[in-house]
Design a protein around this nucleic acid. Structure first.
Lengths: 141, 141
DNA sequence: AGTGAAACTTGAAGTAC
DNA sequence: GTACTTCAAGTTTCACT
C-alpha cells in the first residue's frame, strides 16, 4: 500500500511535522505538489492521524511524571473510561491485559498534587504507582 | 514565565502542530509576526521540544502493541540503555522506580515478532508483558 | 505590530508511463 | 488511470523597522 517514498515522507514528518512541502520534496527529490498529494492521501487513509507537539513538561511546571497501573473495582471500568476527560493530568492511557486494567502516564505539579490525584483514583480502583526517573525514548511511532 | 497567550498558542499547536502563524493568530487575536516570535521564544527556551506525527500503527502493519516492564539483570541497566537504538520496535521508554527498572511501549507486526522481541530482551533482563487492548488517550502533553 | 521581499502553498493544466 | 511536473495566483514566512 505504501511505497518507499511514502515512508521517506513519514520519516521526515516524524522528525519535524512542521517541515514544508518544499523542504520534504528537496530531501527526497520530489516536487512540492507531489509531496502534498501524498501527505493528503496518507491523511485521508487515516495513516497520519494528526500533528502533535512535544513539550518539556518540567519547564511547564509539572515536576513529577508517574506511570500508574490501575486495577479497577468490579463494574468500574466503563465508568472510569467515560470520566477520563475529568483527569487533565493523564497524558496517555491504555487498556491492558493482566491484573491491572489500565496503564496511564500522568504529569503532576508536585508531591501534594500526586497525593490528591491518587486519592481521586482510589474511588475507582487500586492504583500502583511508579515514578518516572527519566525519559529514555520520547513518544515516536 | 508563560502568559495566557503562550498557553493558547501551545494549545493550538497541540491540536495541530502544522497550523500556520496566520491561523493561530486569527484564533487568539494576534498578528502572525507576534505568534511567530512567541513560538520562537518557546522553542529557544526548550519548552517546545519538537513537532511530531501521530500515526495509525495498525494501518502501517504493526498489529500488536504491548507494554513491557523490564527488570534488568545486575549491571545490565547502562548496557541496555546504550543499546536502546538497536530496538526500533520501542516507541517509548522510561526509567522507573520499583522492582522493574524500565517501562516501554512497543509496536510489533505479529505474534512471532513479539516472541522474537521478548527473546532479545531476555538477554538483558526479565520482562513482564502486557498486551495493549486499546488506546484510551493518545500521547498529549 | 506593520511592511515588503522571498519563500511556500495550492489548484489547474499538462506530460509520461 | 496514476503519479509526477510546471506554472501562476494567493498565502505565509521572516527580517526589517
Amino acid at each position: 500500500m505504501l511505497d518507499n517514498i511514502d515512508h521517506k515522507i513519514i520519516n521526515r514528518l516524524k522528525d519535524n511535522s512542521r517541515a514544508s512541502y518544499v523542504e520534504i520534496g528537496r530531501h527526497i527529490g520530489l516536487s512540492p505538489s507531489s509531496v502534498r498529494e501524498r501527505i493528503q492521501k496518507l491523511e485521508d487513509l487515516g495513516i497520519i492521524k494528526g500533528y502533535r507537539l512535544e513539550l518539556d513538561t518540567k519547564k511547564l511546571g509539572f515536576g513529577i511524571e508517574v506511570l500508574i497501573m490501575l486495577k479497577l473495582f468490579s463494574g468500574n471500568l466503563n465508568v472510569f473510561c467515560e470520566e477520563l476527560d475529568k483527569f487533565p493530568e493523564i497524558t496517555e492511557a491504555h487498556r491492558v491485559t493482566g491484573s491491572h486494567n489500565i496503564s496511564m502516564k500522568v504529569i503532576l505539579v508536585d508531591q501534594l498534587h500526586l497525593q490528591q490525584f491518587i486519592d481521586k483514583l482510589l474511588r475507582y480502583g487500586d492504583p500502583t504507582t511508579y515514578l518516572i526517573l527519566s525519559n529514555l525514548i520520547e513518544e515516536k511511532q
